[in-house]
Design a protein around this nucleic acid. Structure first.
Lengths: 278, 278
DNA sequence: TCCGTCGGTGTACGTGGTACACATGCGGCA
DNA sequence: TGCCGCATGTGTACCACGTACACCGACGGA
């Protein structure tokens, strides 16, 4: 259905448009507004045309089809804040990747339809690739092998997208029914009446597992980053430097591997521990 | 749209059906078959009725609507293999959770439409809750606080679902277009021609990042489990026992925390290290 | 005998994306 | 000035979807 060659062309070799009444720019902007306001399901070619004051088929003079329109919408919103985040480069890869992930989530929050639409095989535009590049850059500094850098970025990106998808579904349902997820589940007594036969679930519930649930994004992000960090440590296990100055340490012929490169560093680490220990 | 009360009733208090020509059982089974074979998009009430040899509206005598039909389909396939996996309980929570996750993925692979359909607010049936209970049981043994047990299970479950969703999208596209993801991307030269301006991406590509990419499920699962494991370790950091025998160790007044509870254990650890070391 | 209910049918409505034929107006050229 | 061709906008039409609604035959109990 979607035409990838046409998409690539429109994303990477945009034609300067004559200033006509109806043009690509206006269509894409209006489409984003409509999808932002009422969700992806409400974005139909008819409704969009109506909002712009044209007939449905007029849109097809500027856009090959709905699939390509969505591609352009995605690229548009990916470009929104790319310039603002001056990266706190000194903070280390983990903090930076955390910022990146939060930034992605913010984008999904501004445009919940993004999460509903990302099936696959979408031609990325300059801004979309730019965001990917930024994440690669950050993770590449861990020293992980190239394939793992890409896999790690995809993992984190996928996690954000998946979380956003669930959040978007919640919001969509709330708008359509006027009922929040929490309220909806609270109304399910006829279901809960059957759950006594599950001992662990019942016990955890009684112990308050559902009283103050952690934010799924924050919880999951920390776990995923911990997982990546563990990989980084594992991959660089043979080149671990001094625990204080980071310089390589001599490996003794046997026995416990040394943590520090010199007695001076060892002493410094001791003083640090004692200082904060108390 | 979906009627949760009706769903709950049909899932948990199923009425014994008279053996008529058309009944719920036959409808649900045929629906699962159709969706398995041709994807969720191909599952329409018309097509389903046609396949069963009845008119479209005949289905509505047995099912309130399509949403409820999907709920019944989900529950049906969640029950498929629940009995088979005798849990290797001795292996520890991580190995068991890994088995659980793989089992979930296998279900998604048998029924790719599952991943396409799971928006939210779905009333779970006995088998669906059963699977959840199993995971909770496993993770509860880590000793994590209740809210974290639930969050961890949701994280892993969400990861599996998200991976399955992408895999399902790939399969759907391949069926519809006859082109695999890999082939499709290989045809995107007109896109790649623009990617030189992204230094990290280019470098990683040159270094073979895309030559033998790790399986996203396997890679991600290990990272996520590492993350959960890190949390488990962190939560139980104050009750860490002797590195050899597991008994609690005295904490000295200052200095480096001790790893062993006694000189005997320390010596044993040393011998173990030397034995496998040099 | 009659009547209510259950199961199945047929038609119809409103929604969607978009193919196709047509109208309109403008720029370039003879 | 008159004409052509193209870009742009229009209108109608098709097919597929979920499902509301009116109808109809058959069967079981009073």
């Amino acid at each position: 259905m979607a035409n990838p060659e046409r998409s690539t062309e429109m994303l990477w070799e945009p034609q300067p448009e004559p200033r006509r009444s109806l043009n690509l720019e206006r269509i894409v902007r209006a489409a984003v507004e409509l999808a932002d306001a009422e969700g992806l399901a409400a974005l139909s070619m008819r409704r969009l045309a109506e909002r712009l004051g044209f007939t449905t088929m007029a849109l097809y003079r500027h856009v090959p089809g709905k699939a390509e329109l969505l591609t352009l919408m995605r690229e548009r919103v990916h470009g929104e804040t790319e310039a603002d985040a001056g990266p706190a480069r000194a903070a280390g890869w983990r903090a930076e990747l955390e910022v990146w992930a939060r930034d992605e989530l913010a984008m999904y929050r501004r445009h919940p339809w993004l999460a509903e639409s990302d099936d696959a095989r979408h031609v990325p535009g300059p801004h979309t690739v730019g965001r990917f590049e930024r994440a690669l850059e950050i993770v590449a500094r861990t020293g992980l092998p190239p394939a793992h850098v890409v896999a790690a970025v995809n993992l984190v990106g996928g996690f954000v997208g998946s979380t956003a998808r669930q959040a978007a579904a919640e919001a969509r349902m709330r708008r359509r029914t006027g009922v929040s997820d929490e309220e909806w589940w609270q109304d399910r007594d006829s279901l809960f009446a059957h759950l006594d036969r599950y001992p662990t679930l019942s016990r955890l519930y009684r112990e308050g597992a559902y009283d103050t649930p952690p934010d799924p994004f924050e919880f999951g992000l920390q776990r995923v980053l911990d997982g990546v960090e563990a990989l980084v440590r594992y991959e660089s296990r043979d080149e671990k430097g001094c625990g204080v100055c980071g310089r390589p340490v001599d490996r003794g012929p046997a026995g416990r591997p040394r943590d520090y490169c010199s007695p001076a560093c060892r002493q410094r680490a001791y003083r640090l521990r004692r200082g904060q220990g108390g």
